[in-house]
Design a protein around this nucleic acid. Structure first.
Lengths: 138, 138
DNA sequence: CTGCATCCGCCGGGATACTG
DNA sequence: CAGTATCCCGGCGGATGCAG
């Protein structure tokens, strides 16, 4: 149900109350914010990988999730699938041009994470310590 | 079982096989890739909001999730919570300096989404049509 | 090797009711 | 107004087994 009932806010008119639902960021995150997509994209950003390579490289991913993730990425035109009719079969996955363009904003996020991961850890510990003082030194 | 039997692939050895688990991008996504965090951050990026304002502005969010989301963001030092001891109570939420820095990479993702959302939609429809031709015109 | 099918546990998150 | 507490459901994702 997306029908905005605008209960109170009588469209203040001047404020930028544009609902963030149609905010494109969320759209990307809905596609790529899952558990494995970014990992796959990052791997394919380095070079083309075949299925088993990805499976080995991305530690912890199940065949099921790797397949589902790849399928979704292929469907959205971010990843290219090339099946070689050899025996044993061989399937290569690579980023499409579109997929490669996604690398940039992802790297921006990456840089932010590298710069501020310690800040977040610090803030978190500070916050937790304030809530649960742990009188003893364990 | 991860013991490389190197059936064909003769041990890459020199390639940058660094596992992407320690890839910081995933860290950010684990924190902010949930359903509501980005929406809240975007809203707070525009201006300070109080609880009820966020609740009204972010269409579809439940009190529970708004509370949980805000708590997590505060804990990580991305959002600042200011409770005014008035009656009725009033609580303001605003981005911290750290939170504001996150706006940039988020905007990068945003720009990407705006630029390429149509490409993705097109690729998806093309892919779906190829798989399920739908002979009739429904 | 590259998947697909099935079963199942876990938890994100919605609905609802209640409190300070 | 600004939350908290409880119940509950869907689906994400892991494990396993089977197929081309």
């Amino acid at each position: 149900m997306t029908s905005r009932t605008h209960t109170g806010v009588p469209s203040t008119g001047h404020t930028d109350e544009r609902a963030p639902e149609d905010c494109p960021v969320r759209e990307v995150l809905d596609r790529v914010g899952d558990k494995w997509s970014v990992l796959v994209i990052v791997m394919l950003g380095r070079r083309t990988h075949r299925y088993s390579e990805l499976h080995r490289a991305i530690d912890g991913i199940s065949q099921r999730m790797l397949t589902l993730t790849l399928r979704a990425l292929v469907r959205d035109g971010l990843v290219d699938r090339t099946a070689h009719a050899t025996v044993p079969p061989r399937v290569d996955y690579a980023l499409t041009d579109l997929g490669r363009t996604l690398l940039e904003p992802l790297n921006a996020l990456d840089r932010w994470a590298i710069l501020h991961r310690d800040d977040i850890r610090a803030a978190r510990e500070r916050h937790d310590r304030a809530r649960d003082p742990r009188p003893d030194g364990t």
